[in-house]
Amino acid sequence: MSEESPILFGLYVPPHPQPLLSPDANSGYANLRAAFETCRKRIEESDADLILVYSTTWPSVVGHQIQALKESIWTHVDDDFHYLGSMPYNFHIDTEYAHEYCSAAEKRGLHARTVEYEGFPIDTGSVVALSLLNPDNRIPACIVSSNMYANRSETIVLGKAANDALISQGKKAVVVVVSSLSNRMFTEHIDPSEDRIHSSKDNEWNEKILEFFADGRLEDLSQLSREIHGQIRVQKVVAYKPAWWLAASMGQHNNYDGEVLAYEALHGSGGAVIQLTPSSGSFGDKEFDEDDVEYYQGDRNVLNKGNN
């Protein structure tokens, strides 16, 4: 299985800027930073042609947006953590892959478009991930948005389309999901040395999710996404989607070697750096009956049924 997959391994990393801007403010941030460094080295040692990022801090409304500007240069400042400093970036984007991903998404029924505009505001999570994982633009990157209305079917199809595009271009990639685990932050400013997970409930859920990751049970996490959303996600969007996208792009099974490189608090939320590498062994004791989906049919227009 691992020989066939165009995805060499997957990473799950947090979106907060502390590991980039203030890694020494607490030992947890430093641990996360070190884990990012380890992943950077592993990407360098792999023969990946591309880093593909799915970012939960880039919301879209009109379908799915894919970053395609070859030289994406700007100085980013976070809405909340502006006082930690600016994040200048200069990312090399794989424009050809971005266009291929867009057309693969369209072939699967999704509304998708590339964005190719000077000054486009690349989101905090993507800036942090690419700055730390690929600081010298050793290989090109691509970034895909997270549609705020999209739910399971749409996200799974979006993940599969990423894979389609890699296969059609014969490229090998490392995929990176940028997302917290629990995402409830403290609502006041804190001394970074006193950072901790917001509640023990959030911490317990994070630990359980990390057990699944460590066991390589990606499809199980994908199937548990709705439960995760209800338990530890602030209800900003309709669903917790990263595991759907990651499983759909990497393969919807539990045959992975999982490694949790770091798990720390980031202003109260759960930040983890995790690697999943395709393997041959399967682990899992759960069965699910939610149907798989290959093609997105669009909204079912329940509201308008019977009105004609």
């Binding site: 964005v115 505009y117 000077e118 000054g119 486009f120 505001p121």
Partner: peptide, 9 residues
């Protein structure tokens, strides 16, 4: 320059 992340077009 302000570029709308949702409607950059």
């Amino acid at each position: 320059k302000s570029v709308d992340p949702v409607f950059p077009n």
